[in-house]
Computed example of a mutant assay.
Amino acid sequence: MNPNKALWEKGDFTRIAESMRESGEALVAKLGITKGLDVLDLGCGDGTTAIPEAKFGANVLGVDIATNLVEAGNLRAKNEGLKNCTFQEGDATDLQELKDQSFDLVVSIFGAMFAPKPFDVAKEMVRVTRSGGRIVMGNWIPGDPTLVAQILKISSAYTPPPPEGFISPMLWGIEENVIERFVNAGIIKENISFVKDTFTFRISGNPSELVNTFKTFYGPTMNAFEAAEKNGKAMELQHELEVLFNSQNKSTTANTTSIPATFLKVTVIR
């Protein structure tokens, strides 16, 4: 089985996505989506940004490698009565089922960054975007002190080293790498721009509950706990994550959690 597919089908990312809905809607509100725009949401999960895009009137195709997330996205769209939003399985490194220049806007928020072969990912995103269209990516930043970069950093300390040739998804959070990948795909450097933005994880519950959601349902954290259990270090990992989540919680209301995370927002003009 494709290891990337296995990773994202391992848990149930919909449980993490529940804490991301508000920020997903806020991000989409800034994309300037108009009725009838053709949008590809790549690495879409169960539709945290795809569903809001459709609510703005776009014709949205969500593509994700995980079967369970595609099914969950189609169910959400059906429950919302959105006939302009469909989800299908696909691999960001090879979107062979999608025609050249099919979309006005390609969006990938913390999605395509996790696919292997980043140069292929950039080429495919450029290929399916119409001339004059846009690509917008949200990518976590390596070494950033905020939540997700730190979860991945802590988790990696407990897991075996990756296989030879593995390219860290976090490299999508470095401007020079993004430029190199899109220039290689035929984009001129001047058409690539960057801004740092914030995505907030919110739940009705305390930070420990959010830690347990990541522990139980988020593939990378699940792998870290499995490896830590074998080495007798699961309690250590749990403690590190508890300290992280509690220290970054900005909520002033009891039994609610609000943790902002910094990301790199990339805009590419085709």
Rank of each mutant, 00 (worst) to 15 (best):
L95H: 06
Q96C: 09
E97V: 03
E97C: 04
E97F: 05
L98W: 06
D100I: 06
Q101T: 03
Q101L: 05
Q101A: 06
F103K: 00
F103V: 02
L105F: 09
V106T: 07
V106M: 03
V106W: 00
V106G: 03
V107N: 02
V107G: 02
F114E: 08
F114P: 05
P116W: 10
K117N: 05
F119C: 07
F119N: 15
D120M: 09
D120H: 11
V121Y: 00
V121N: 00
K123Q: 15
M125V: 04
V128F: 00
T129E: 04
T129M: 03
R130E: 12
S131R: 10
S131K: 14
S131Q: 15
M137Y: 08
G138M: 02
G138K: 00
W140Y: 10
W140P: 00
W140G: 03
D144L: 11
D144G: 14
D144T: 14
D144K: 11
P145L: 15
T146N: 13
V148L: 15
V148A: 09
V148N: 13
A149S: 15
A149I: 10
I151E: 01
I151V: 15
L152S: 10
L152E: 11
K153C: 07
K153G: 15
P162E: 08
P162S: 09
P163S: 14
P163I: 11
E164M: 13
G165H: 12
G165F: 08
G165M: 10
F166M: 12
F166L: 11
I167L: 14
S168I: 04
P169E: 05
P169A: 04
W172P: 00
W172S: 06
I174N: 06
